[in-house]
Design a protein around this nucleic acid. Structure first.
Lengths: 127, 127, 127, 127
DNA sequence: GTGGTCTAGACCACG
DNA sequence: GTGGTCTAGACCACA
């Protein structure tokens, strides 16, 4: 995996370390990161995105704690071998559920009908 | 307007005062809060949702600073008279854009095709 | 920047947090605070002037909201990088306009001729 | 005296009742309101400026308390007979002192030289 | 170390 | 009745 796979927004309200952890979760669930695959080093990620190494380290640590990653001594962090890549589509969709619920609530507050929202999302998802 | 119009999630990562400000923005843009309409008092909102009055006051203050609300001395806060109720659908959709972009990015990270995401959202928006 | 650069008058009708915001505006516009410069920490300012940290925090937060300052996570608040230090003299003079208009109105109400007012101000500005 | 002599800014941070009291002080000191002169009624001022009668009443009450006005039974409020109209220029200038000091401080914070400030004020005072 | 959020409560200003 | 300001202090999040 390459450091450029991660998207970091330093000024987002979402803290950086959590941006990383959550992206890792999705990339593993979606199979873009296969079990056993080696992650870029803390220094590499930190350098590439110009962020504090401690922040990356913290993210890796949390991902390890939840069983997403595992530490390979002398080699770095890798996707945990126990992770079967690619959960079912249904399981992956469930990870998006909270965000979709919130989006729907906001659309309702804006008195937006479903149609334009779906049209715009169709375009965005089509990329 | 009634204090029950606001939805507060005390345990969300989003701070309460910002939840309020952002909901006000959407409710005003969507026309559910008309220009000139009086908002529930700080104490009323605080009591109803069992939060500290200062938290509500902070939200109202910020909304005033950005020109969304205005203070009617001795009467309370009202939607700013300069706010034309109900922007165009296009303008309201633009307020959802960042959230939709993020949702699409996450779906891509999960390697989810567009179809199941749109199907689920159609249901959620239909309510 | 040093905490002593700020002048706080605890008994002025102008609330403390706004005294701070407005001083920051002028100091940045005047170039005494350069873009990127780190501000004294909340605790430092609060301690130096014997006021509550939250009061300072509130001022910093508002200044950030209006794009004057930016948060450097873990390091503190700094003058926003987008702020070009030192606007033109004309722009800075415009920031004084409301106060000058009000002063002139009061002089007129007092039936004071221009001459003694200008003489006194010349002295005050000469310091 | 006519209600239109008073300038009211309902949205200024300065509370309305104090705007009135301070204007009365200056108009009396400057001689535009002569000792014994009758003021417009509370209702008249409130109606003309579209503000709450209680606010005007409070201002009149305070002005009476400090000996600026006096209540003439059945006739209304008048400038106190003991007020000699027109203090010396020096005394009137002293009433502007705090505002001039503050203006000078702000100019210094803006790194503005005396010359453009005085030039602008000359124009404003000349009206 | 940095700032952020929230609370509980006092007190003020305004109408 | 309304909102505003400030305090003291707890606790969290981030680097």
């Amino acid at each position: 995996m390459d450091a450029s796979l991660l998207t970091i927004q330093p000024n987002a309200p979402e803290p950086i370390y959590r941006q990383i952890v959550e992206q890792l979760r999705r990339l593993v669930a979606g199979g873009q990161l296969a079990a056993g695959e080696l992650l870029p080093s803390v220094r590499e990620v930190a350098g590439f995105h110009a962020i504090n190494p401690m922040t990356v380290s913290r993210a890796y640590g949390l991902a390890e704690a939840e069983g997403l990653l595992e530490r390979l001594r002398g080699k770095g962090m890798a996707v945990a071998a126990t992770r079967r890549a690619g959960q079912t589509e249904h399981q992956r969709l469930a990870l998006l559920e909270p965000q979709m619920v919130e989006l729907a609530r906001h659309a309702r507050e804006l008195e937006l009908p479903a149609e334009p929202v779906l049209r715009r999302l169709t375009r965005l998802l089509g990329d």
